[in-house]
Amino acid sequence: MNTVTQPETAKDLRGEQLPNGSERPFVAPDVNIFETKDGYFLEAEIPGVNKAGLEITVEGNELTIVGRRESFEPKAELLYRESSVSDYRRVFELDPAIDTGKIDAKVDQGILTLHLPKTERVKPRKVTVSD
């Protein structure tokens, strides 16, 4: 059985070229992936990103998640910072069994949940034996 994904391709951590020539780095969000018999569920931690900041694309068998933080900065002086200024990006190689037309996504309190259903033909099917 194929695994959902072969994450950590070199692309994951490569920055994005901005029009002005500078490079903007990304961080790879932490994910959990579960496989059920009907498909996969992928959860990614993207605190600070809302629906508008998400960009999920499927190209061939590659799934790319990009999450841009809402640039909320209080109008105050920053004394101390631990949070990353980077946006999120991670690329996954999809199991060919996934029906890419039926992927759906939702985001709630900084957790992106993707449901990646398998195509009907690969789901286990029971064959009844006729008399």
């Binding site: 109008k75 631990e82 309190q109 957790i111």
Partner: peptide
């Protein structure tokens, strides 16, 4: 969890990244 601290004249502002709580 990452914590940020801001200050302005009126108040202190603390932000903490706590996804999925």
């Amino acid at each position: 969890p990452a914590i940020d601290l801001y200050e302005d004249k009126e108040s202190l502002i603390v932000k903490a990244e706590l996804p999925g709580m």
